Structures are given as structure tokens and as C-alpha cells.
Simulated assay, not measured.
Amino acid sequence: MDQKQAASNQRQIQIDQLEQQNKELRKALRTSEEKLAAVLEGTDTKVWQLDVASQALKIFNAPWGAMLGYRQDEIEASVSGWESCLHPDDRVEVVAAFEAHLRGESDAFEVEHRMLHKDGSSSWVSDRGRVVEFDQQGKPLRMIGAHRDITQEKLYQQRLAKLIDHDPLTGLLNRSALIKKYQALDTADSDKAALLFIDLDNFKYVNDHYGHKFGDLVLCYIADMLKSMLLANSTICRFGGDEFVILHACAEPSQLIELAESLLAPFKVPLSVEGESMNVGLSIGISVFEIGIDCFSDVCQRADQAMYQVKRNGKNNLQFCSLIT
């Protein structure tokens, strides 16, 4: 065998070795992907990879688009395809965070956002990734991350927030939520606002005569009535028992009187609830206050005093605290 033939044989051996190594690497990669898919199977976590140059995206443990109800041929496996599925209310924030990380302005891309499904519904995901490979000039080549469906967690958080801020019987805001609203008032439109303290007249008779279960139905019925008659700049809460408080972001006396009288009007005649007729009224005390100066408890106490003045004067009426003698 001459030297030329020997060199050729050596090159072929090297090629065969490289092909064998490549085959083994591909097999190892498939095995790793299979192991990853097995570990993540049954979870809501999907692992993805981005080729920065081509903008191609790949999900390792699920068909591309399956999470959103698409077939693989219905949506492009790319950054633009991903962006098209971002909820419009979240898109600007998410894309900005993604691009900021690619520019090296953050340690990781990390954001919670909504994705749009093929059927028009949406789901929440927690998305996190980072660049794992750079070229010699330090430009990003490859990015790896994972997104996890957190829709149920978000729904739980929303339900918990509602329980914290809402009265469980009527669905209205509760006292603590109203105090937050009071503290959040600003003087952009006016330096004064008003608080209306409402106590139901003759409600004790309803409870005693029909029972507390029926009394709860009446409370819910009245809560819905009051809420439906509010103005755009009003907030109502169930303060406790048969007491309601309205925070009105305007101190104009004529508007306050108009609001209070509109609330009183339906109670001029007997209410009919579940086929039962009953006389229930509203005693309304009104306190005007200076935003950012008067504390909630003082304003509430003044409105409460005005409400009791209505009780003493015959019930089912309104009274400004400044008119108390």
C-alpha cells in the first residue's frame, strides 16, 4: 500500500469515527430530550429554545403551539409567531423585557403574562429564560427557558383578593376595602369629597318576623338596588350588619342631595322580596370632608351622627352633618 492510499484510508477512518461520534451524540441528545419530556410529563412546564439568528423557537417536551390549541402547521415556530399569541394588554411589556435581556440589560427574561388560545380564550404563564451561548463578539446566539401555566394560581389569587376586599354575603366592598379607597383619593379633580352613611330602617323587624335567612336575602336585594343607583364617581361598601357606606368623589351639595334622594325614592313604598311585602327605609347621614386632611374615622363618625339625627326625626330621609344642632 503506497503512502497516498494509506493517507486516504486514515482519512476515511477519521470520517467514520466522526460519523460514529455524531451518531452517538444525536442518540444522547434524543435520550436527554426523552428524559426531560418524561420528567415534565403531566406538569404545566414547557422548555423552549431560541436560535437568535434565525428567530426560530423550539419546545422540547410538546408540539409547538399545542399549549394554545394549535396544530404545528397553524402557527409559525418563531418569535413573531410567539408574539402574535401574546395578550394585547401584555404584549408591550413582555416584548420589552424579552428584547432588554437580549441586549444584555437584565440577568434573565422573567415575566408573568397572558397567552391567547386559538379558541379566543387566554391563559396565564410564568415565562423565564436566559441567553446561554454567545459568539466571539459577545452577541447572543442561543437562549433557553421555560414557561409554566399559572392560570389556576392566578384564579386562586383573584378569588382570594375578592374574599379579602368583598363582603361574602352581598358581594359589595367591605369596610377595609372602602378605607383603602378613601386613602387613595387625590385632589386632582377636587379637594373635597363626601361620605354617605346609610342605616336600614325597620330591618330588625324583618329579621325578627321572617328570620335571619330571609333577612340576608333582603340585605342582598337592597345592596343590589343601591349599587345600581350609584353615580360613576361613587363607591359603596357594606359597613357591617344593616349599614352601608358610600364614598362619593364630589362635595357639591346639589349632587349629594340628588344622589341621596334617588337612593331614598324606591323605599317610599313597601319593598317586595320573594313575594313578601315589607316597609324598609334608609336613614342617610352625609359628611363632606377635605381629601388628605380629615381622617376616615372622624368623617365616618360625623356621618353616623347625622344618620342618627334622621332616625330621631322620623327615619327614611337624609341629613348633612353640618346641619346638626
Rank of each mutant, 00 (worst) to 15 (best):
D2N: 15
Q3S: 14
A7T: 15
Q10M: 13
I15V: 12
E19Y: 06
Q20S: 13
Q20F: 09
L25M: 11
R26C: 03
A28H: 06
R30G: 11
E34K: 14
L36N: 09
A38M: 11
V39Q: 02
G42Y: 10
D51N: 15
D51M: 10
K58W: 06
G65Q: 09
A66D: 13
Y70L: 07
D73C: 11
A77Y: 13
G81W: 06
W82F: 15
S84L: 09
S84A: 15
C85S: 12
E93P: 02
A96W: 00
A96P: 03
F98Q: 04
E99D: 13
E99R: 14
L102V: 08
R103C: 13
R103T: 10
E105A: 04
S106W: 00
H117L: 14
G120P: 04
G120T: 01
S122W: 12
V125M: 03
D127T: 02
D127E: 09
F134N: 08
D135R: 06
D135G: 07
M143G: 11
I144A: 11
H147V: 03
R148F: 08
D149M: 05
D149R: 08
D149Y: 00
I150F: 05
R159N: 14
R159F: 06
L160M: 13
L163Y: 11
I164F: 03
L172E: 08
L172T: 09
N174S: 09
N174R: 06
S176D: 15
A177Q: 04
Q183F: 08
A184E: 10
T187G: 02
D189C: 10
S190R: 14
S190W: 07
A193H: 03
A194E: 01
L196C: 05
D201C: 00
D201W: 08
D201L: 06
D208K: 10
D208S: 07
H209R: 14
D216W: 02
C220K: 15
Y221G: 01
I222H: 02
A223M: 00
L226H: 03
K227V: 01
S234K: 09
G241H: 01
E243I: 03
V245P: 00
V245L: 11
H248G: 04
C250T: 12
A251I: 02
Q255F: 05
L256P: 03
L256K: 06
I257H: 07
L263A: 03
L263N: 03
L263V: 06
K268P: 00
S272R: 15
S272M: 15
S277Y: 01
N279I: 12
G281K: 06
G285K: 05
V288L: 05
S297E: 15
S297Q: 07
D298W: 07
C300K: 03
Q301A: 13
Q305E: 12
Q305M: 12
A306T: 06
M307E: 07
Q309K: 07
V310R: 04
V310A: 05
G314Q: 05
G314R: 02
N316I: 00
N316S: 08
F320L: 00
F320V: 04
F320P: 09
S322N: 09
I324S: 13
T325S: 13
